[in-house]
Simulated scan of single mutants.
Amino acid sequence: MSAKPAAEAVDPVKEERAGKVREVGSQAIWSLSSCKPGFGVDQLRDDCMETYWQSDGQLPHLVNIQFRRKTTVSDICIFTDYKLDESYTPSRISIRAGTNFNDLQEVEVMDLSEPTGWVTVPVKDIHDRPIRTFMIQIAVISNHQNGRDTHMRQIKIHSPAEHRGAAGLEGSGQFTSLEFRQYSCIR
């Protein structure tokens, strides 16, 4: 795929609260190609913008996200802060998807120009639909100012929210407010 300009910044938490997407990263096993002690997966997933993953080694730097079952992924949200991290900030990333490490295929490449805040990377198949995959890999290809190591402050993996009505039919009896949405499915 060809490189595209950075996507517009979106607040992924707002999208989750609005019921448009679900964060499915908690259903996956996360691993990194490298990290400095105390700057690993826990910091990448702690919902705190002050902490970050810091790689420790040669490019490309990899974030591996493996799901236990085939999962629909619509976009990946990455929080970076060029103002704080400068040469540690990714300037080019590649998103790869597949069944395992051996069959990953590149599905998106994105150039980032001094990003500060959330950047959303849509992940679509050739029919412009969210992909279904067992594994996502985020590869940092290059950093700003030819930096060696990378800082990523947060990553969220989104799946489209499933809107099912009373009888499991699309569009029937959809609840729109947060108070009513809690009754939208029978447990």
Score class of each variant (00 low, 15 high):
residue 50 E to G: 00
residue 38 G to E: 11
residue 139 A to D: 02
residue 18 A to V: 02
residue 143 N to S: 04
residue 9 A to D: 11
residue 172 S to E: 15
residue 133 T to N: 05
residue 76 I to N: 03
residue 152 M to F: 01
residue 161 A to T: 00
residue 24 V to P: 05
residue 91 S to H: 10
residue 187 R to A: 07
residue 108 E to K: 05
residue 177 S to F: 09
residue 140 V to I: 04
residue 170 E to V: 08
residue 118 W to Q: 00
residue 92 R to Q: 14
residue 154 Q to I: 02
residue 65 I to D: 10
residue 25 G to E: 03
residue 132 R to E: 11
residue 100 N to P: 05
residue 81 D to F: 10
residue 97 A to T: 05
residue 70 K to Q: 12
residue 128 D to W: 01
residue 79 F to L: 11
residue 69 R to Q: 15
residue 164 R to S: 15
residue 126 I to Q: 03
residue 58 Q to P: 11
residue 174 Q to N: 13
residue 151 H to Y: 09
residue 18 A to F: 01
residue 11 D to S: 13
residue 85 D to V: 03
residue 7 A to D: 13
residue 30 W to D: 06
residue 143 N to R: 06
residue 169 L to Y: 11
residue 38 G to M: 11
residue 49 M to N: 13
residue 13 V to E: 15
residue 95 I to N: 04
residue 11 D to F: 12
residue 133 T to H: 07
residue 159 S to N: 03
residue 162 E to Q: 15
residue 142 S to F: 09
residue 185 C to S: 07
residue 145 Q to G: 09
residue 31 S to L: 06
residue 113 S to W: 08
residue 154 Q to W: 05
residue 21 V to P: 03
residue 15 E to L: 11
residue 113 S to N: 12
residue 151 H to A: 13
residue 12 P to H: 05
residue 78 I to Y: 01
residue 49 M to R: 14
residue 58 Q to R: 14
residue 114 E to V: 08
residue 138 I to S: 03
residue 59 L to K: 12
residue 97 A to M: 09
residue 170 E to Y: 14
residue 112 L to M: 03
residue 33 S to D: 02
residue 65 I to L: 09
residue 70 K to F: 10
residue 111 D to E: 09
residue 105 Q to R: 00
residue 16 E to L: 01
residue 70 K to I: 10
residue 53 W to N: 06
residue 57 G to R: 14
residue 148 R to N: 13
residue 139 A to S: 10
residue 40 G to I: 09
residue 174 Q to C: 14
